[in-house]
Write a protein that binds this DNA or RNA. Structure first.
Length: 875
DNA sequence: GCAAGGTC
């Protein structure tokens, strides 16, 4: 009997390629099976999966939402089916005659489950070959070879922990999602979802919004004075700003004065001062340690401060990873593995544009990279691979992100920075003490009347004025050693200069200011702050948190950026808090983590944990049964509130944003069909109702979200009125019907806010040319010789610009677009455009000429319908 | 068509 090949299975294609390279010493060849790369050398084959290639679901008889009571899902069977047919087929073919199978998926819980899934697929076709498991934390020669020299077994308990998570997530998510959707009669694309991760994430946002809405601002005052060293013969002294402070009842310093009259008295006192004397000088040196290596969350946060959304940052990092320039971007690890030699990696940057920084780091006697708190087994922290891109290979955004990763790695190898902090306290004297003594110290306190901060009872009296005068303080900091700031410009190293002064020194007191301020509500979570918070609470994973946020947008739960929850989101959270609390609580994940740990250690098993979870969900459904209508009504009201613009001018109902049969948006009356009042909306983008309303019509302003083409439309009634009032301005003959029918071209303002040059015989003749949305259009005396039309000039911004003859302008626009980059088409990103160019499609023009089926065959992950969709958009 | 988790 001939021995078949050994089969190695990895979690992803990239890992398969690199492992094959390492184990074969570079001799592996690539062949395609079912459109999947298989690496072969000697008696070995290596195939990469694409994460989970099978998925859990309910059997088909449960798939109709209307025929199945959501509660039935609680005890429904769960089946596992292939989701990536081609990869599953390739794996089966290879497994059939394999003599041995080695599972080399990622070294984490989900990797163990993916490995077990591969094992099951292998066993379907081959019940003899031994199946081993190898584990390594990073794909380096030493780790991989060590792992393959000493193979282990699949940890079925650990995999079962992952399976329990799958089952619980499916059952809770599907049952409650269907319940909410059915109760609100939202069954189309606009179903109402909840889940173990999206639930608590949404509640974070809703809770913050509740705090903001409940916030009651308080007034307070702060005082400032401009101090300066007295000019001496040797040179002029520096000026610096100092702030008034007093000593609170508990002995701490306080700057905010919570009472207006008291603040005024103190300001009078400060104005009466004729100078200040330095009372105390305090110098301290502080070290400022370099940052820890990047995990996914901290990477997203740093990219966020450069203006990238979480989604965009991850997509760019994935591109850089696939191209081989940075390591795997999905990781929780903040400790470099032992086999990452920082010196060696720094040397790879010699002679590049990072060369000087790399050299200066290499000149250190020893390099001890920083470490974060989290050390995991799956992947190393995100770092450059040492494979160097040519700047021209990367888009501007990719380069910026690449540089961030390189510089972060540099920073982790760099020395700490040191700062000198200088704190100066001076007393504003002269008449200040006498006048200041007139201020009521108790009134300065926030809690003085006992009701502001609840039951905080304050006793004692603060000291508003010191013996020698009004206290002023200034804090300066100077960078003594730049340390890692030299190589990592993304965190501020700004200095605040306070000049050297000595105790007892007299200072001039210049301008004095009393500033009235208000306490501010808490800020909304930004995307990266939200991801940090999710990580803190343990919800979601490094690979999914940014997707969860995208999902909240897709479901209509949040809008704009930073994400703001809609009324629908509030209603979903309210309903869940009342009837299905676990689904919006981070506690559910915490419990699940405990249960999974118990399964992994063998204390519990899959059935025990999933049965227990089903029982809890069962009781929740018992409660829900009676409240179905109540919940549904509230959800529907909230959905309507999210779409409500304001009062209808023709009846007592409200105007709503509606969607036409053709998928376009318009404004219609809630009283339809009794009231048929409508207003049009622009044809591009998805409408978002802003908080601001139109003073004249009491309607919410409308913003049209359309990616880079997003714009504020304003009040749709105002736009329609403006169009009704504007007279069409005739500029020449219609080229289509001017001679035969006498049609003329005119500049027209449409009721949906757009403008065009169109035929006066519309709709009999629909000849039209586009015009820009913004700016005033001037008809000049100059005429186009070819089309006999006047040149147009557009007044927007500071400088008017020449649009010229509208026909020539449109022709040029078309030509530019035809020859322009593929990326102008919605849905084509940089990666897809690159793939298209490889297939010989260089620009929009050649995309339009392409045969959809042929092109789809040539480009991975693109179907003929997608091509047709692009072609339609190109027109 | 539901979730969350992989991967792209």
């Amino acid at each position: 009997m001939s021995r078949g090949p050994e089969l190695i299975v990895t979690e992803k294609e990239n890992a398969a390629r690199r492992i094959a390279e390492i184990l074969s010493g570079g001799a592996a060849e690539t062949e395609r099976r079912n459109g999947v790369n298989v690496y072969r050398w000697g008696g070995k084959r290596c195939i990469g999966l694409s994460g989970h290639v099978v998925g859990v679901d309910f059997p088909p008889e449960y798939s109709d939402w209307r025929d199945v009571e959501p509660a039935e899902l609680v005890d429904a069977p769960i089946v596992t089916e292939p989701t990536q047919e081609n990869i599953v087929a390739a794996l089966r073919r290879l497994a059939r005659n394999a003599s041995r199978v080695i599972i080399a998926t990622d070294y984490d819980r989900e990797g163990e489950l993916i490995g077990k899934e591969a094992y099951e697929l292998v066993r379907e076709v081959n019940d003899e070959a031994p199946v081993d498991r190898v584990r390594f934390s990073s794909i380096t020669e030493r780790e991989v070879k060590d792992a393959f020299d000493d193979p282990d077994e699949i940890d079925f308990d650990l995999a079962a922990a992952g399976e329990a998570r799958q089952a619980i997530d499916l059952v809770w998510g599907a049952a409650l999602t269907r319940f909410l959707s059915l109760s609100a009669r939202q069954l189309g694309d606009d179903f109402i979802s909840v889940g173990r991760v999206q639930g608590p994430t949404l509640k974070l946002l809703v809770d913050r919004e509740r705090e903001i809405q409940a916030f009651d601002p308080e007034s307070y005052w702060e005082l400032f004075g401009e101090l300066s060293k007295k000019a001496t013969g040797a040179g002029s002294g520096g000026e610096f700003e100092a702030q008034y402070f007093y000593v609170d009842v508990d002995g701490t310093e306080a700057e905010r004065v919570w009472d207006g009259p008291t603040a005024e008295t103190l300001a009078d006192a400060l104005r009466a001062a004729d100078g200040a004397e330095v009372d105390d000088v305090n110098r301290r040196t502080r070290t400022d340690d370099p940052p820890a290596p990047f995990n996914t969350t901290q990477f997203i946060r740093a990219a966020g401060s450069l203006g990238y959304s979480a989604q965009r940052a991850m997509s760019l990092a994935e591109d850089l990873y696939t191209a081989g320039f940075v390591s795997y971007p999905r990781t929780d690890n903040t400790v470099y593995p032992d086999d990452l030699d920082p010196r060696e990696l720094l040397e790879a940057f010699r002679g590049t544009r990072f060369g000087d920084d790399a050299e200066s780091l290499l000149s250190q006697e020893s390099i001890e990279p920083t470490e974060g708190d989290e050390e995991t087994t799956d992947h190393p922290p995100i770092h450059p691979t040492g494979e160097l891109p040519d700047a021209s290979e990367l888009s501007d955004d990719e380069w910026e992100i690449y540089e961030l990763v390189v510089r972060r790695f540099f920073a982790t190898c760099a020395p700490a920075a040191t700062w000198e902090h200088l704190r100066v306290v001076a007393l504003a004297d002269g008449e200040a003490s006498r006048i200041g003594a007139e201020a009521d110290p108790r009134a300065a306190l926030r809690e003085h009347d006992g009701d502001v901060e609840g039951d905080v009872e304050t006793t004692g009296t603060p000291s508003l004025v010191a013996d020698g005068g009004l206290r002023l303080k200034a804090n300066g900091k100077r960078l003594l050693e730049a340390g890692y700031h030299e190589v990592y410009p993304y965190v501020s190293s700004k200095e605040t200069i306070v000049p050297d002064v000595e105790a007892g020194e007299r200072l001039d007191l210049g301008e004095r200011r009393l500033e009235a301020k208000e306490t501010q509500p808490p800020r909304r979570y930004g995307q990266s702050r939200l991801i940090e918070k999710m990580e803190e609470l343990g919800i979601g994973t490094k690979a999914t948190r940014h997707h969860t946020i995208e999902k909240l947008y897709d479901r209509g739960y949040v809008e704009s950026d930073p994400p703001r929850p809609t009324r629908l989101a509030e209603a979903v959270v309210e309903a869940a808090e009342k009837f299905a609390e676990p689904i919006v609580s981070e506690g559910m994940t915490a419990q699940l983590e405990r249960d999974m740990a118990a399964i992994a250690s063998g204390e519990k098993d899959y059935d025990e944990v999933t049965d227990e979870s089903r029982e809890l969900l069962e009781t929740i459904f018992e409660e829900l049964a009676d409240s179905r209508e109540e919940i549904g009504d509230h959800l529907q009201e909230s959905l309507k509130a999210d779409k409500t613009l304001g009062p209808c001018p023709e009846c007592d109902s409200q105007l709503l944003v509606r969607k036409s049969r053709y998928g376009s948006y318009f404004v219609g009356c809630d009283g339809y069909p009794n009231c048929e009042y409508t207003l049009p909306l622009p044809s591009t983008g998805k409408p978002l109702l802003l908080d601001e309303t139109c003073e004249e019509h009491d309607l919410h302003q409308v913003k049209m979200l359309a990616g880079r083409k997003t714009f504020v439309h304003g009040c749709p009634q105002c736009k329609a009125d403006a169009a009704d009032e504007a007279d069409d301005e005739v500029i020449g003959d219609c080229p289509e019907c001017g001679e035969t029918e006498g049609g003329e071209l005119a500049i027209k303002q449409l009721r949906n806010g757009s403008r065009l040059v169109g035929c006066t015989r519309y709709p009999d003749c629909d000849y039209s040319l586009p015009l820009p949305r913004r700016g005033e259009i001037e008809v000049t005396d100059e005429r186009c010789g070819e089309h006999d039309l006047p040149h147009l000039r557009v007044h927007s911004g500071d400088e008017p610009w020449e649009l010229g003859c509208p026909i020539c302008n449109y022709r040029e626009y078309r030509a530019r677009r035809e020859g322009s980059e593929l990326e102008v088409i919605e849905g084509i990103g940089e990666k897809t455009a690159e793939k298209l160019r490889e297939a010989g499609v260089e620009d929009v023009g050649s995309l339009k000429d392409a045969e959809p089926d042929e092109l789809a065959d040539e480009v991975d992950g693109v179907g003929p319908d997608t091509v047709r969709d692009w072609q339609a958009k190109a027109d």
